[in-house]
Design a binder for these strands. Structure first.
Lengths: 148, 148
DNA sequence: CGCAGATAAGTTGTGTACAACTTAATTGCG
DNA sequence: CGCAATTAAGTTGTACACAACTTATCTGCG
C-alpha cells in the first residue's frame, strides 16, 4: 500500500537520473570545446535561428530558462568569444544575443555530437522518437497547467 | 543535413526540459514540508530501508549522487531535524544516515505525493510505466558503458 | 608489525536553476 | 501629456551537481 513510495517505481526519479546520465555522456564531448550542456543548448537555438539574434527572453522561452539562469550563462559565453550581446535599438530593455564567427565555425565541428550521444543511449531510432514525443507531451501538459 | 542540430529534434533536450518541468510540479508540494526534490529522494531511500540506516555511499549508489552533493544536502536535512548522521562503530570512515521520528511521521503525510505528481503528467498508467522502463534502460546502458 | 595503497566522507570552486528583488525602459490609460 | 503598471534583463541568495582535492581510516602485503 505504501509501495508507491518505492524509488524504483517512480517515473520522476527515472527521469531525473536519465537526465543526469545523458549529461554525463555530453560532458567529455562538450568539454573538448569548453562548453557545458546548457551553454550548448543556447548555441543550438542560436544556430537554428541563423542571423536572427533572439533576445534573452526568446532564448528563455525556447529553453524554459529565466534571466536568472541565462544572464550569467550568456556572460560566460560572451567571455568565451562565442556570443555577442547588444541592447536592441528599438527597445532598450531588450538584449539581442548574436553568434560570433568562432561560434559559427564550431557548428561544423560539432555536427556529429547528437549522433554520438544518441548511440550512447542504446535505444533504436524509433524508441528515441517515441521517448522524445512522450517527454515533450509531459512538459507541455505541465506547462499548460501552470498557466491556468 | 544539419537538421540533426535542431532543438525540437533532440531527445536530450526533451529529457532535460521534462525533468525540470516535473521538478516544477514537485516544488509547491514539497515546499509545504520544507523539502527540495533531491532531499525528498533521500527520504524515499531511507523510508524504503526502514531501520537499516545506509551509509552516504550507499545512498549515493541508489541516487547516483556523490559525496560532494550528498554531504551538504544531508547537513541540511539534519539541521531540519529529519535525519541523524553517525560514524559507524565498525568502520569509522563510514557515516550512517538514519531517520528521526519526525521524518517517519512525514512519510504518512506525504503518501499521496507520487499520485498527485503522476496525475499532473497527463500520462496513463501504462504510459508512465513504459516511460519509466525506457528511461531506466537508458540510465543503465550509459552507466554500464562508463564502467568499462 | 609497518606502511603503501585504497576507501569514505567532507571541502572547495565552478556552473547551473530558480525565487525574489532591483533597475531601466516602455506602454497605455485617464 | 503624465504617470502608474508592465516588461526586460540583471543581481542576490539558496540549493543542487560535479570535478578535484583533503583528511581520516582501514586493508593487505612484505
Amino acid at each position: 500500500m505504501t509501495d508507491d513510495l518505492v524509488l524504483r517505481r517512480q517515473v520522476c526519479f527515472a527521469l531525473y537520473a536519465a537526465s543526469r546520465s545523458l549529461t554525463d555522456v555530453y560532458r567529455p564531448i562538450l568539454d573538448e570545446h569548453g562548453l557545458t550542456y546548457p551553454q550548448y543548448l543556447v548555441l543550438l537555438v542560436l544556430w537554428e535561428r541563423g542571423d536572427e539574434a533572439p533576445t534573452v527572453s526568446e532564448l528563455g522561452a525556447q529553453l524554459r530558462l529565466d534571466s536568472g539562469t541565462l544572464s550569467p550563462l550568456l556572460k560566460r559565453l560572451e567571455a568565451a568569444g562565442l556570443v555577442v550581446r547588444s541592447r536592441a535599438a528599438r527597445d532598450e530593455r531588450r538584449v539581442e544575443v548574436g553568434l560570433t564567427e568562432r561560434a559559427r565555425d564550431l557548428r561544423q565541428r560539432m555536427h556529429d555530437v547528437p549522433l554520438r550521444v544518441a548511440r550512447a543511449t542504446g535505444l533504436t531510432e524509433a524508441e528515441l522518437i517515441g521517448l522524445r514525443d512522450t517527454l515533450t507531451r509531459v512538459t507541455e501538459t505541465i506547462h499548460r497547467q501552470k498557466e491556468q
